[in-house]
Design a protein around this nucleic acid. Structure first.
Lengths: 350, 350
DNA sequence: GAGCCGCACTAGAGCGCTCTAGTTCACATC
DNA sequence: GATGTGAACTAGAGCGCTCTAGTGCGGCTC
């Protein structure tokens, strides 16, 4: 029963053999044509492709990966529905394609852990793995990196065993703080990112920038990766006396900043009139006219490009095997929009 | 050169053969253990698993899919970074797992078309395909459905060749309009979704509801799938005289609603004091306290479950092959939060 | 005309699994 | 003791490709 149904399916399955028969050549020749390597005359090449088109044939990737010594496959773990991961993925697809690698995606959801996602990538025999905003421990990552080349995007990993491609988070927050200071702000708060990837570095950048500049006052409000935490931070912000409140805020990321802005505006404050806000990432929404968020831009295009390059160079033997490449740190860029303005008498009632 | 490097990799590769040798059994027995089928004694089973653990072995999915007549694999196309697709994916992973299918993801990005995404899924020899919010033409989808079972989630497809799992969009907008009417609103506008999946049905639902209820005035503002279009619609809304403006708005989706609310609030209007707003989807953000959007909830969990069930039943031969199942239409649910309120004298200056 | 080159093409042995058709063996049955 | 039974296990032929090591042959040189 089961067998017979399967047999039906089998009979429909068109393989290289069928294409070869139709084109009047050997299987090997068809393989040569589809891999795009030398060894077939132009005439035959076209005949084979025509036969394949007629039969609606396309090579079975499972079989080709098995047959070849290389799978030319890169695994990617990411959070499904995460806006910035979407931007990164766009870049990964482009550059993987250019480097002749295929991408295998494995999503991380509330009920599907990153470890499980990685497990399926290993079972697929990916040659390298890209982790977007990994939340695994350094030890776990190091163990994985001993198996195959791994690059952590967005999240720094100490120890040097794991490849890292990230934005200079520390410099990013320095940029944010200096921008606000140049506008005359002295009470600049940080909406912290807690334990999220990159948060520790941004906190460090904030602290360093505040301490270096004379007259700045350090003030850290608990925040987090989404609008929810930004909104909560706003409530804490509003609970302070108007006199004692910071006049500017640097947020862990754009979504956090957007949640913050939403709530302070609903409370009747003006952004940037009463409080200036700087985000981080430059997600698509930040550029929408009604949001117009000043932010520290992470270059998704370059982050993706470097992640692929890092792995491809190791896999293609262009860089010494064994030694993972040094971390790639990309400089962020301040994008000034309409959520920041010079400090005014209104928000510094001295 | 190339060869030698590859040979090194080969030597590291641990296969079923190695596990079998270590456990002192045949390859076939190891296969039996890993597939979890009957035919191995408990003692042997444990010995094999122990050997596998020692060698850090995991079966090669490429090879197992090739060897078996079934791949037990479902392909999914989705928009990377799309919030609601993230919610759906969560459900898809859960139910695919329960039905003993694996998911293969293929992302759609601005530079990677849905057709290209489908192409890689076919090359992977998926047994069925789930399309989230497909934007392909009916003809393209019908052609694909002739090759293998396909289910379109969120987007209705006429013709009956393609499986469909969706929310009753029409009923959803009726729910929204009736809720607003019950609050006393008579001028209820629709922020339209344009050509996005589901938009036509929602428009129809809005029209029907408005026409059925005496006293309601039809008013459609161009909108779209993101905050950007919601914000633009808000500007058109604000351009109307305060007297002539609708007192309530039903948006194509939550993101559109959020953009709308943002802009009208920045213009000094109160939501829901001056204008009530209803969204659609019930994305995570809609429930955040500072957003508190009244919305028509699409049940991501059930949509995902039905998508998997539809395909699994056809593939496992439980439903007659050839005839695609009837469309599954899931009733939406109104979630009342704080963005809607009874009409007041203030917003109906008669 | 012998010898050689290089292009176009083929044979066939893998790749790491699955799965059918066995084999083996302890134990029960008559 | 011959036979049967069923559980535990194995042999080996695929699955649809890749890729090395060929073969065949037209054209060139000397």
């Amino acid at each position: 029963m089961e067998r017979s149904r399967v047999a039906d399916v089998d009979s429909e399955r068109v393989t290289m053999e069928h294409v070869a028969a139709r084109a009047g050549v050997s299987r090997a020749l068809v393989s040569i044509v589809f891999r795009g390597v030398a060894g077939a005359s132009e005439a035959t090449r076209e005949r084979v492709l025509a036969a394949a088109r007629d039969l609606d044939y396309r090579p079975d990737t499972r079989a080709s990966r098995l047959g070849s010594s290389r799978t030319r496959t890169l695994g990617v773990t990411f959070s499904v529905g995460h806006t910035f991961h979407g931007d990164l993925m766009e870049s990964l697809y482009t550059h993987a394609d250019a480097a002749a690698y295929e991408l295998v995606l494995s999503g991380v959801t509330p009920s599907r852990s990153e470890a499980a996602a990685v497990e399926t990538l290993l079972a697929e025999r990916c040659e390298g793995i890209v982790l977007l905003g990994s939340s695994q421990s350094t030890a776990q990552l190091a163990r994985l990196a001993r198996r195959l080349p791994v690059v952590s995007v967005l999240r720094p990993v100490p120890g040097g065993e794991v490849g890292v491609v990230r934005t200079d988070d520390t410099a990013g927050l320095r940029l944010a703080v200096e921008h606000l200071r140049a506008l005359g702000h002295t009470r600049i708060a940080l909406l912290d990112g807690g334990r999220t990837a990159g948060a520790a570095e941004r906190r460090r950048g904030y602290r360093a920038a505040v301490r270096r500049a004379p007259g700045l006052v350090e003030s850290i409000l608990p925040g987090g990766p989404s609008e929810l935490e930004g909104a909560e931070a706003a409530r804490a912000f509003l609970a302070q006396t108007a006199r004692g409140r910071p006049t500017a805020v640097a947020a862990f990321n754009d979504r956090c900043a957007i949640g913050f802005v939403d709530v302070v505006r609903q409370a009747g404050l003006r952004v940037p009139g009463d409080v200036s806000v700087v985000g981080f990432d430059d997600i698509t929404e930040a550029a929408y006219p009604h949001v117009a968020l000043t932010t520290v831009r992470q270059d998704a295009e370059r982050l993706g490009a470097e992640a692929v390059r890092t792995l491809a160079e190791r896999l293609d033997g262009e860089s010494p095997p064994g030694t993972p490449p040094p971390p790639v740190v990309i400089e962020p860029e301040l994008v000034v929009r309409a959520s920041t303005a010079p400090v005014t008498r209104r928000n510094t009632p001295s």
